[in-house]
Amino acid sequence: MAEIVSLPEGIAAAVHDGDTLVMEGFTHLIPFAAGHEIIRQGRRDLTLVRMTPDLVYDQLIGMGCASKLIFSWGGNPGVGSLHRFRDAVENAWPLPLELEEHSHAGMANRYLAGASGLPFAVLRGYVGTDLPAQTDTIRPITCPFTGEVLTAVPALSPDVTIIHAQRADRKGNVQMWGILGVQKEAVLAAKRSLITVEEIVDSLDHKPQEVVLPSFATTYVAVAPGGSHPSYAQGYSLRDNGFYTEWDAISKDRDTFLRWMDENVMRRAPAA
């Protein structure tokens, strides 16, 4: 059964130096509060995994928490570059960042294999692109039934997956709805999980197209109201598009970035 903890307790228990860490969220429900707590607790040498590393990974990378990134699209959606990510790749600042680069289809299938307890997944993908030459985890495989050559990618089985959801009940059953990306698969693929929620309620009333993660399938649940800001939690908050635009200027310059992180993350206690 999931244990209901505070956010700092959850991060301390779930995330260790050197871990392979997934924080998923597809524009919606991105676990920013958890990412900020990881930065405050000073985790190092993380292998960060995410299909769409956006601002929270830019922050983790810029604060020196990561040594490797496994990803398929690293940008500020609708705005442009992730400047801290680029600075790490182009100039090794503040640290070199090793890349393992995939496509969305490949990453999604890697989570699916992890959640299914399989060693790899099969897809039609990557053929003719320059990605297989740079990424060792993309390999051809021959179908034993038809002889067709397809592409294999290994399962992702992270040490820990963190996601943000709308709510949980007091037993730790987690409910989420709206755009859910690959979060269910990412939680089920992981050895440990931490789910931050907007609120804990007595009982979960059903929502259209909901996903429920049963309490026995997760490790920790922590309340973090507004914990996906500047992303959003459908039914609770709206996406702060203005902040995504502002981040471009904040993150462009190393000193401006460090000052912003000091004022807005390092000196702030976590909510709740």
Partner: peptide, 13 residues
Amino acid sequence: PKVRLPGAGGAPE
């Protein structure tokens, strides 16, 4: 790289 772009996303497939 001279410039690191966002990457593939869904485009290859």
